[in-house]
């Protein structure tokens, strides 16, 4: 579903990604962990071209993102993204936040889009907030809306960029539980997270990144119980 070959990213002289080779299969949940500055978020953002790779190739569903004539808007419709800071549209109500893109891009009628939005709001447990504005919601609620908004495009892949890092501790759980439901439904997910519990429980595969490279990867069992790389051992000793 996602194939990444020799992905490099430089910001001026800063070499953030130094050659990532990865594949994410359909229905797989991959959780990327690692210290800050290791390139996790940059990797994720390259997958929908929010960052332009300096070198390397990325394929989504067999389509290359790095060839010059790519229709990135079409591909992004298949790849939902959830941000650390939610990025809800503050001037729109919750329902409009969710229906805007499906109506403009997928040509859904207002009625169809509203039905879809209601279905998604039920799913994330926030149907009662349908006519509120984002400012009236807590952080956890905002992030659940952000997930619903991304799902409204009916994507094949969901990217999560530290979705719980900006939340108060008591709100982390409600967001993780929505993500877990999504994983159980078979959604293909690439998640950058510091939630080791979530990684262990929901992740099919864990990537440990350090200094722009995936230095160790494997099942949660292997990563958390039998880490081999010294940097991973050091990292785990600090976070667990």
């Amino acid at each position: 579903m996602i194939i990444v070959k020799d992905l490099h990213k430089k910001f001026d002289k800063l070499h953030v990604l130094k050659g990532i080779n990865q594949e994410v299969k359909k229905g797989e949940v991959v959780v990327v962990i690692g210290p800050s500055g290791s390139g996790k978020s940059t990797y994720l953002r390259c997958v929908n071209l929010l960052e332009q790779p300096t070198r390397g190739e990325i394929f989504i569903d067999g389509e290359s993102l790095t060839q010059p004539k790519v229709n990135i808007n079409k591909i992004r419709q298949k790849v939902g993204m959830v941000f650390q800071h939610f990025n809800l549209f503050p001037h729109l109500t919750i329902i409009d936040n969710i229906t805007l893109a499906p109506m403009k891009l997928r040509g859904l009628s207002e009625k169809r889009a509203t039905e879809l939005a209601k279905h998604l709001l039920n799913k994330v447990g926030l149907i009662d907030k349908i006519n509120n504005y984002p400012v009236q919601l807590s952080g956890g609620q905002k992030q659940r809306i952000a997930i619903a908004r991304a799902l409204a495009m009916e994507p094949e892949i969901m990217l999560f960029d530290e979705p719980t890092s900006a939340l108060d501790p008591e709100m982390v759980k409600e967001v993780l539980s929505v993500m877990k439901d999504l994983a159980l439904e078979g959604m293909t997910m690439l998640v950058v997270s510091h939630e080791m519990g979530f990684a262990k429980e929901v992740g099919d595969r864990i990537l440990f990144m350090d200094d722009g490279l995936v230095v160790e990867e494997g099942t949660p069992e292997k990563i958390f119980n039998n880490p081999t790389h010294p940097r991973l051992k050091e990292f785990l000793s600090k976070v667990l």
Partner: peptide, 24 residues
Amino acid sequence: GQMEAGRSLGMPHGMVMRYIIIPQ
């Protein structure tokens, strides 16, 4: 982040400007 959120949904730059950036 507003531009990125709009673009990540697949909206072209002009559409994000019109419906998301300019109104704010």
